[in-house]
Design a protein around this nucleic acid. Structure first.
Lengths: 124, 124
DNA sequence: TCCATATATGAATATATGCTCATGCATAAA
DNA sequence: TTTATGCATGAGCATATATTCATATATGGA
């Protein structure tokens, strides 16, 4: 490796380097984009998105969630932990039962925008 | 047995089965939710979200994208294929160069809503 | 107290995924 | 035609991730 620190760029012109620098300045910071990816990753699993969409309708306990999304209690519980850590859901205990509900007001908007994309894509 | 509809217990079936059935009816169909998860999965990778955010600013060729997101040309090319298949980006060729740009008007909205979540979460 | 229920969780496993490396392909220049 | 450039792609690898299984914890009832 001779040019270790160098980034490979189109060699033809110097216009590119300038362009790249300007875009890098305008672009959202790297750490934020990494966080953003982590955030969207949570929506990128069918079990989790089913849970979120169900909770969008109403507060539910774990076993009902499991029945609704068609996964085992254990699987749902594992996913709920991820959703809890991401602060997307909150819970309250009532006896042995734990009721989960949404804890983020952006979920509906994100889901809806995603659904809009899916539906429009179907038209083509 | 003796379920007055008071506290819902998971094995005293009637109340719950009814609840579950109603929610299942209201819920977006399974296949759609699976598609939706597939869609969000695309935003759940830092390389891809960087590419999308860069293209949100302007049309770019592959090697410039690679320099901007800090990944190899090959890695970017692989990710661009995924973005193409998802119909999130389009491209045009100009000589040896391939310029990519966004092909979906929902991207900005989705990214912005995600960023809003990240930023509000920081306040706590 | 003893047992059943509701949920949580650690370990193990199978699969998915993103990257690198090597190479192929197309276009442009020499 | 030969060489160089920009991009695409398949194979292989290392890591991440979602599920299952077994078990732990907590609460309520007999």
């Amino acid at each position: 490796m001779k040019d270790e620190g160098k980034i490979e760029v189109c060699k033809t012109t110097f216009v590119h380097e300038d362009k790249i620098r300007k875009i890098k300045e305008k672009l959202v910071k790297d750490e934020v984009l990494i966080e953003l990816a982590e955030f969207f990753k949570i929506f990128g699993d069918s079990t989790r998105i089913k849970i979120l969409c169900a909770l969008l309708l109403e507060e539910l306990c774990v076993c009902d969630l499991a029945a609704i999304v068609g996964a085992s209690q254990s699987a749902v519980s594992h996913q709920l932990r991820i959703l809890r850590q991401a602060k997307l859901v909150k819970f309250r205990k009532e006896g042995k039962t734990v009721f989960y509900s949404l804890d983020d007001e952006h979920i509906a908007k994100i889901v809806d925008t995603g659904l809009a994309h899916i539906q429009e894509r179907k038209k083509t």
